[in-house]
Computed example of a mutant assay.
Amino acid sequence: MEVDDTDRQLLAALAEDGRATTNDLSAATGISPPVVEQRVTGLEKRDAIAGYEARVDYDELGFDVTAVVQLTAADARRAEVLDELRTADQYVTVYEVTGEYDVVAVGRFRDTAELNERVGELVTTEGVAEVTTAVVLDTVADDPLSPLRGD
């Protein structure tokens, strides 16, 4: 799907404030309200905007540890392992990947004790062959619109 500079401006403004009104978006982008409404509706209809959600600050809620968990799973159990991770409360993102590992999951934990407990559960899960965990020290970039800036 092609997006132009007008679409990019609107997507960026919505990423900053998903609750912005048509008038708010118009003021932020300099695009007239009727065009804003038409463009946003078009982006929604084309599923370029999949929905609107709150950005949660996990640190403020007491989830002070972010970890990237990589694991390999036996082929026969991979679907079950993915289902377990998908439904586990602490994992905010789970990817099935190519390469050395089969799964990469990003989790939020209250402390290292909770992280250790959850990783310990993974290690003993049937079909999980290897688990590697990296604790995130700092978020250097988190920009979901970055790919749109390259066009």
Rank of each mutant, 00 (worst) to 15 (best):
V3Y: 02
V3T: 07
D4R: 15
D5R: 15
D5L: 15
D5I: 15
D7C: 15
D7K: 14
Q9F: 13
G18F: 08
G18W: 07
R19L: 06
A20F: 07
A20V: 10
A20N: 07
N23M: 15
N23C: 10
L25M: 09
S26E: 07
A27R: 15
A28T: 08
A28C: 09
A28F: 11
G30N: 10
I31M: 13
I31V: 15
S32E: 11
P33H: 03
P34M: 08
P34W: 07
P34T: 06
V36D: 00
V36H: 00
E37M: 14
E37A: 15
R39K: 15
V40D: 08
T41M: 13
L43D: 04
E44R: 14
D47L: 15
I49W: 00
G51N: 07
G51R: 09
E53K: 06
R55V: 10
V56G: 02
D57K: 12
Y58G: 00
E60L: 13
G62Q: 00
G62T: 02
F63Y: 13
D64P: 05
V65G: 02
V65M: 01
V65R: 03
A67E: 02
V69R: 02
V69I: 09
L71D: 09
A73M: 04
A73W: 04
A74W: 10
A74I: 14
D75P: 05
R77L: 06
R77C: 01
A79L: 11
E80H: 01
L82C: 01
L82Y: 01
D83Q: 02
E84M: 00
L85E: 01
L85S: 03
R86I: 03
A88G: 04
A88W: 08
Q90K: 07
Q90C: 06
Y91A: 03
V92K: 01
T93Q: 02
T93E: 03
T93G: 01
T93S: 05
E96G: 08
V97G: 03
V97I: 06
G99Q: 01
G99N: 03
V104Q: 07
V104W: 07
G107R: 11
G107D: 09
R110C: 00
R110T: 05
T112Y: 05
T112L: 09
A113Q: 09
E114V: 10
L115V: 11
N116M: 14
G120N: 05
L122K: 10
V123W: 09
T124Q: 12
V128L: 08
A129I: 13
V131D: 01
T133S: 03
T133A: 01
A134R: 13
V136W: 05
V136A: 13
V136L: 04
L137G: 12
L137K: 12
T139Y: 07
V140M: 12
V140E: 12
D143E: 13
L145E: 10
S146T: 14
S146G: 10
P147V: 14
P147Y: 13
L148E: 08
R149L: 13
G150Q: 13
G150W: 12
D151L: 11
D151Y: 11
